[in-house]
Design a protein around this nucleic acid. Sequence first.
DNA 1: CTGTTAGCGCCTTCAG
DNA 2: CTGAAGGCGCTAACAG
Lengths: 331, 331
Amino acid sequence: MVTILDVARLAGVSKATVSRALNGKVFVREEVKARIMQAIEETGYKPNQLARNLANNKTNSVGLVITNGLYNGPFFSSMIYHAATNSEMHGRQLVLADGKHSAQEERDAIDLLLSLRCEAIMIYPKYLTVEELDEIIEQSETPIVVINRELVRHRSQCVFVDHQQSCAAMMAYLLAQGHTRIAFVAGSEGSPTGESRLAGYHNALRNAGIEPDPQLLVRGTWSTDSGYEAGRELLARDVPFTCVLAGNDDMAIGVAKACHEAGLRLPQDVSLAGFDDSVIGKYYNPSLTTIHVPMDEMIRHAVGIVLTPEDNASCSHQGELVRRESVRTLL
Amino acid sequence: MVTILDVARLAGVSKATVSRALNGKVFVREEVKARIMQAIEETGYKPNQLARNLANNKTNSVGLVITNGLYNGPFFSSMIYHAATNSEMHGRQLVLADGKHSAQEERDAIDLLLSLRCEAIMIYPKYLTVEELDEIIEQSETPIVVINRELVRHRSQCVFVDHQQSCAAMMAYLLAQGHTRIAFVAGSEGSPTGESRLAGYHNALRNAGIEPDPQLLVRGTWSTDSGYEAGRELLARDVPFTCVLAGNDDMAIGVAKACHEAGLRLPQDVSLAGFDDSVIGKYYNPSLTTIHVPMDEMIRHAVGIVLTPEDNASCSHQGELVRRESVRTLL
DNA sequence: CTGTTAGCGCCTTCAG
DNA sequence: CTGAAGGCGCTAACAG
């Protein structure tokens, strides 16, 4: 492996001078610089970032913990895209760590990033509870920001969207179209996002003077497949409904398939809506009414919190209703 | 920052002993070990991976260069998923680098990974040509494997699927269903994948004794939006066709939207097919006939090449026809 | 402007 | 089994 010493020798200077020529803080005579560049060229020298990071005691990197499940394709990739883009805008390299399938593995992922000496860590938790996250934040020297959880004890270390009120907005719209028998496909049991949306559904119904019918509630696990199963289950119950609201767009697409198989047309026979505004929804036929979650904004905010803590905008973000073809009016 | 020295002092031993206790290659008295663990607990010590990597001169990481465009969501995330999973199975952490928007930036991404001292690098190139890749491989000390390009000079450093023959298989199927006026939505100009599929289309037509009609060829840029535009363009030309084959599933979905807007029903009025077997295709209505690209297999192979070079299975993989509802038979 | 001298935190001989 | 000493490749004072 060719080191800075090899370059220094070839150029007939000291290591320090090479280092300076490379990092450009201090001036180096042009002539010497040229000789050094020449030597670098000849030797094919590539600075060892590890050594550099160790010497500087900083890594120019930020970590992101996210559970890398194949099922969450669009969501996952949009998140990584925004995280990488925003990190780079701050001159930082994004390092990913997989939270896998348990709270312990999410902790391990954080530890990995910590041991890699990332300057800051962002986590989109799946298994860790807010209490556990609170604790982790308190014990950590390096800045941590939690995405998609409201941390009341650490309001400036989290960004999230208010799912309950997004759901309320969606329900208001659905009710306004004349739907009263609205089925709901909830997300995984225990998922805060899922529970908030479910709560939003129940509240909206009650506020409209409609008692929620348990027969109209089914559970999925966020995946399209689970949405399909949920749809079949719902249909099998043979209770009347005019609209299905799914906990996310993926499940909504699954429900749509179940409806088609049953010979139901969208939106003539049944209306459908979801959450997340995933790409597919825009192009699905019929295009899917949904709630847009401002991922870009949230991630930009998260990166900002962790890299330039002086900015602290409010941690709460708003979802936005996107009306498309899949919901028809009954009026 | 708490270092190994702090732990050593607290436990009343030397740094070396702590290191040994942690790495477990050499035996340390149980009693001493316990004291050390206790000290680690108390101090909250986390080994500095940077220092460790520098001392060991290895990083236990493999790099992946890929252009992180938002548009290529499903493809991108499936790739990362498999790369991360397979790397971890070999005990390596996956590090991503964005190839962005030019050959130079792809080179930079490789250099970044090299300077991070990744043990091996995988690249899914977008801008670098095979000649440039050949050169990079020859000059690099660290193993590099190229995904989705056939490198004739480096057959054991690449994995790819034979797109031309996959396309031939698709065309054979389409022709067998009685379609002869088949439109083609090509991918970006200059993309090897796109050109191979296009070549497969042309050859299949000629082999069937059909002269390709330039009016039936439109260009897209892989995105759903571009597929939509391409579909509109095609419809505007007002030439007859019974089927459209798109260069990937995303564009196929875009074409479908254009068809719906024009009042055409799928597959009754026009048949549709794509490539890549993306999740959306399975759930689209009608479900999309496509070619499955064995990403899992390819990535597993790529990781294998680079981490355990003794395995060298053939670098070529086969796509597989997935027949679904979007193509109807004319017979 | 440039060379010399010390580390960064950890691992690994080499003695004991 | 354990301690002392040296080094991984680079940067950062401190002199010249």
